[in-house]
């Protein structure tokens, strides 16, 4: 690979006419400046202006943003909501977990009032959810699982055996054959590990 060009924060990379700002940069007075110390990358898209970004070896912390799909673990539930720890944002693991809340009305898209949290999640479940709000003074991140692709991905039964999803609302333990109610995510077949 060609010798990498390093840049430091505050270094002027190029003007806005020559590129669009990517990650690790900011704009000021019509110029693009670096905001991280790392390798300077210029990815040219076909037809459009090249994207100018600064790459670091260790990717910096990514914060859960509105609309991002996150993977979280349920830590406690009550009749109104479930408290979760956000572990991954997309596929990047977080160094320290963030706290989130899934309200009762955000668990399912349909029949929101008839939902029971106990029948959707249990503590210890790994859930795929989407961020709907960063929260305000009172609350943490607000998440929702009101989509088909969102919901419980991994759950353990009372016998502590990993359960297998049967339908969109049930999972079964392979050893005891007991069925438990969960709001299950419809994972694409290619992602399933069989």
């Amino acid at each position: 690979m060609a010798p990498a060009r390093y840049c430091v924060p505050g270094e002027r990379l190029c003007s806005l006419e020559e590129g669009t700002p990517g990650s690790g940069t900011y704009t000021h007075h019509g110029f693009i400046f670096a905001s991280l110390a790392g390798c300077f990358m210029k990815k040219s898209e076909n037809g459009m202006l090249p994207v100018v970004s600064v790459m670091r070896d260790v990717d910096s912390q990514l914060l859960p943003d509105v609309g991002a799909t996150v993977t979280c673990k349920v830590c406690s539930i009550n009749s109104r909501f479930a408290k979760v720890h956000i572990l991954y944002v997309g596929s990047t693991p977080l160094k320290s977990p963030f706290r989130g809340t899934i309200r009762r009305e955000d668990i399912r898209a349909t029949e929101k009032d008839k939902v029971e949290v106990y029948k959707s999640f249990r503590p210890g479940d790994i859930v795929l959810a989407k961020v709907i709000s960063l929260g305000d003074v009172q609350s943490n991140y607000l998440l929702t699982t009101a989509e088909n692709e969102l919901g419980v991905v991994v759950a353990h039964s009372e016998a502590d055996v990993r359960m297998v999803p049967i339908s969109w609302c049930e999972m079964q333990c392979p050893s005891t054959h007991a069925k438990e109610l969960r709001k299950v995510a419809r994972v694409q077949p290619e992602f399933l590990q069989t």
């Binding site: 430091v8 000021h28 905001s35 991280l36 110390a37 910096s60 912390q61």
Partner: peptide, 11 residues
């Protein structure tokens, strides 16, 4: 801060 990779305007 540079080491942590937090975006900064300048040194």
């Amino acid at each position: 801060l540079l080491d942590a990779g937090i975006p900064m305007r300048d040194y």
